[in-house]
């Protein structure tokens, strides 16, 4: 039997070490962190203006929306070599991947389209016309329903992934940025950056119904800076974390009552969020302070901030 040093170190650690990939919008790079030590362990060029970033469910491919290259770049998460590109349509910003690893759904802001791409054949399976400036993308837990939010149309579009056609539209507040399904599939959250609210959409009825809007209030912070953007919900559907952009806070929401229970101070202009697979930690990208904040999820406390590249935008964590 042969044990190499890194494995020994790993075995000694309290948790699994996962690679954390952070896209740096201005730095044109991806920074790699180790989730056991929170040290930067690598950085590699990722095309022009990398924003949306997601790793395949099996951890074998890292997809990056290189917005100014009008393409999705595919990287090997081990070697950081580029292994290909995917047709994305112009200016791809955010995407979501099917739980099986295929297909990839991309929001194209310039063309008012959602593009469905087969990641193996690189074929465009469908283009779905949506509202003006599509942005947020989310898949229902069973993969049957795709939600896209359009920033200027102010709608959440519900797209049937069987027919690739829109089956419902729900109006939300100004500039919807991000959508997140509950894991039991009964609820959808949509953040509206300029509206300053998170819409709670009930999915248990015949049609999706907007049942509540969650507002935010932080003493000493001007209401117009409370701009909800990225969101993440724990697997038990109990806690929703919402990045509040230039308010430099992450809101903690009780996802059973949909009320805010706390605000965590993080870096400047907090944008996107991701959990480690065990949900022990939440990573926040802070675009204007060039760092990520690490939140201890159980304690609901910020434990660390780590400098990354210039203007971090998106974050994804390798699976166990």
């Amino acid at each position: 039997m042969r044990l190499t040093l890194p494995i020994l170190l790993l075995a000694a650690g309290p948790t699994f070490a996962n690679k954390v990939f952070v896209s740096n919008e201005r730095g044109n790079s991806v920074t790699v962190l180790d989730s056991a030590t929170w040290e930067v362990i690598g950085e590699f060029p990722a095309g022009n203006r990398p924003r949306g970033i997601v790793i395949s469910p099996d951890g074998s491919r890292l997809y990056v929306c290189a917005s100014d290259d009008d393409t999705v770049r595919v990287f090997d998460p081990e070697t950081y070599e580029e292994i290909g590109t995917l047709p994305s349509g112009p200016d791809p910003e955010l995407f979501v991947i099917d739980a099986s690893g295929n297909p990839l759904y991309v929001a194209n802001e310039d063309d008012n389209l959602v593009t469905v791409v087969d990641v193996d054949t690189r074929a465009v399976l469908a283009e779905v016309p949506v509202g003006v400036e599509p942005e947020g993308m989310a898949l229902s837990p069973d993969g049957a329903m795709l939600v896209n939010t359009s920033e200027t149309t102010n709608m959440a579009h519900f797209i049937d992934t069987g027919s690739f056609s829109i089956v419902h539209n729900v109006l939300v507040d100004q500039r919807p940025r991000y959508a997140e399904f509950s894991h039991d599939g009964t609820k959808l959250y949509v953040s509206a950056e300029i509206g300053g609210t998170v819409a709670v959409i009930d999915l248990t009825g015949e049609e999706p119904a907007l049942v509540k809007k969650i507002g935010f209030e932080v003493a000493g912070v001007r209401p117009e800076w409370l701009q909800p953007v990225g969101m993440r919900l724990t697997k038990d559907d109990k806690r929703l974390f919402v990045a509040l952009g230039p308010a430099n806070r992450v809101a903690v929401i009780d996802a059973e009552t949909d009320e805010v229970v706390d605000y965590l101070l993080v870096g400047q202009r907090v944008w996107q969020l991701e959990f480690t697979p065990d949900e022990a930690f939440l990573i926040t990208t802070n675009g204007n302070s060039n760092d990520v904040s690490i939140v201890d999820v159980a304690a609901e406390k910020v434990i660390k901030s780590v400098q990354v590249g210039e203007q971090p935008w998106g974050v994804t964590v390798a699976p166990d």
């Binding site: 109006l171 907007l210 509540k212 809007k213 507002g215 209030e217 009320e259 229970v261």
Partner: peptide, 17 residues
């Protein structure tokens, strides 16, 4: 610290139909 408010949504039932 004062927490949040739930913004009342009067007309969201959307007069759209």
């Amino acid at each position: 610290m004062p927490m949040l408010g739930i913004v009342a949504v009067a007309w969201f039932a959307v007069l759209v139909s």
